[in-house]
Simulated assay, not measured.
Amino acid sequence: MEIVFVSGTGTEVGKTYVAQQLAVAKRSAGVRVGVYKPVASGCIRQPRNSETNSATPVAPLVSSDAVALWEAAGRPLNLDAVCPQRFEASVAPDEAARRSGQRVDVDQLTRGADRWRDHCDTLIIEGAGGLLSPIADDLLNIDLFGQFQDAELYLVAANRLGVIHEVVATCRAAALSQVSVSRLYLSATGPTADESSPSNAEQIRRWLPELDVREVGWGQVDWSRGLL
């Protein structure tokens, strides 16, 4: 099973959108795709239905990111398999868990990925927040990535003023942990680009010449042009 770990330079940078479109592109190429978000915060409660695969009488928490990934992958398995740990507060997962009187199950973060082994050729894992954001007590996203042997790390960054610093700082921090970023997706943040957007990719390539930099346009749908 090929594993692709999608992380970001921070929150709200287009990470879920890129992961969605990766799933769509893989499916279009005839690949069986699995999607996995090990833990999510900021979840909402909605009436229980058969698709959530939950037996509890209390309305379950649902991650909108997990739903988007699941739909993009063609609804494989169920939402509990996509995102087994869900918390309500819109803060980092470890803090969201504490506020609900729980803790993130560190073992389940990786164990949940094993559930997909017989059900996909490629598993797309989306982390929570940025690459150096906490995902559990004493565990950052970059630490979780390191637990998936032979996984590729794809970084997503918002193509706007300031992104050069964000990408260079994240990649250099990763290198200090002996982690290599395989690919960067510069994601448009709106229909109108700011003045820095046209030159950001070139600037990043100058500072990080080994990095595979790809640009994602606003509302881009033709993912045959360089997504995979």
Rank of each mutant, 00 (worst) to 15 (best):
R48A: 06
T52C: 10
N53P: 02
S54I: 08
S54Y: 01
A59P: 06
S63I: 03
S63R: 09
S64D: 11
S64I: 08
S64N: 10
V67K: 03
L69I: 12
W70N: 01
E71A: 04
E71K: 08
A72W: 01
A72G: 00
A73C: 02
A73D: 00
G74P: 03
P76D: 08
L79D: 01
L79N: 02
D80W: 11
V82S: 02
C83A: 09
Q85C: 04
A92V: 10
A92S: 15
E95P: 04
A96T: 14
A96S: 13
R98Q: 15
R98N: 08
R99H: 12
G101H: 13
Q102G: 05
R103V: 14
R103L: 15
V104M: 13
V104P: 09
D105R: 03
Q108D: 09
T110I: 15
T110L: 14
R111F: 07
G112N: 01
R115V: 15
R115M: 05
W116D: 08
W116Y: 07
D118N: 12
H119E: 05
C120Q: 01
D121K: 05
D121Y: 07
I124L: 07
E126Y: 00
E126T: 00
A128V: 07
A128T: 05
G130H: 11
L131W: 15
S133H: 12
S133P: 04
S133R: 04
P134Y: 08
A136Y: 05
D137K: 03
D138S: 14
L139A: 09
L140W: 06
D143W: 11
D143R: 10
